[in-house]
């Protein structure tokens, strides 16, 4: 599994608290059997009006095309457990998300994709968004080993659950292999815990 040491590129500010998973990917686009192609629908209803014409949104702006890091605010990804949400972001090229806080299931889903979801303070997120609005081309780098984000000439120390960070830097974010190591113990637990027999 790939070790995620650094994410380097450009960042797009998507301001707002409590940006929910229905906004990231409206439910009507989840009628699919794979996660391919979901990028087309990322933030669909805030990017396009009912006629499919582009609305004012940073993800529609020329200067942010090709961004691979998204910077938002408090409680990003709240709502549903849909893994479609991080996959939709992945589909538009996002490889890391920065916010003041994340909904728990969303943060876990990001990690399952090998996509860091890292936390800066309210002030730092605001400052970073200001910077990106002034200088959309600013080079941004997340150093996962050092937990440091640099943007232009600014440096921030980010946080994230240490378990997630370790999984990313050691390339153990695809958990299946890790879990399969314990098949013996799993078998014992299965015997020990109640099972379901219909009356």
């Amino acid at each position: 599994m790939k070790e995620i040491g650094k994410v380097t590129g450009q960042a797009v500010p998507v301001r707002g608290d409590d940006i929910d998973t229905d906004r990231i990917i409206p439910a009507r686009f989840m009628k699919c059997l794979t996660f391919d192609g979901l990028g087309e629908y990322a933030f669909y209803d805030v990017r396009f009006d009912v006629n499919g014409d582009k609305k004012d949104h940073p993800l529609n702006e020329e200067v942010y095309q090709g961004s691979n890091i998204l910077v938002s605010n408090r409680n990003f990804g709240c709502g549903s457990s849909r893994e479609h949400a991080p996959w939709a972001l992945y589909g538009i090229g996002i490889r890391a998300v920065v916010a003041e806080s994340f909904a728990e299931i969303f943060a876990g889903n990001c990690n399952s994709l090998g996509m860091p979801a890292v936390i800066l303070s309210h002030e730092e997120c605001g400052e970073l968004q200001d910077l990106l609005e002034k200088d959309p081309a600013a080079a941004v780098e997340l150093d996962m080993e050092k937990s440091v984000l640099t943007a232009g000439n600014k440096t921030y120390t980010f946080t994230m659950p240490e378990t997630y960070r370790k999984a990313l830097v050691s390339g153990q974010w695809d958990t299946t292999a890790l879990l399969l190591d314990s098949l013996g113990a799993i078998g014992m637990k299965n015997e020990e815990l109640p099972r379901f027999t219909p009356a």
């Binding site: 996660f35 457990s81 299931i105 399952s112 695809d174 958990t175 399969l180 799993i186």
Partner: peptide
């Protein structure tokens, strides 16, 4: 009882376990 993403559904199908804090 808690909600999970699809990668964790995969993990539970394959191992009846998942990674969680």
């Amino acid at each position: 009882a808690f909600g999970i993403g699809t990668s964790q559904i995969r993990d539970i199908l394959a191992t009846q376990t998942m990674a969680l804090s």
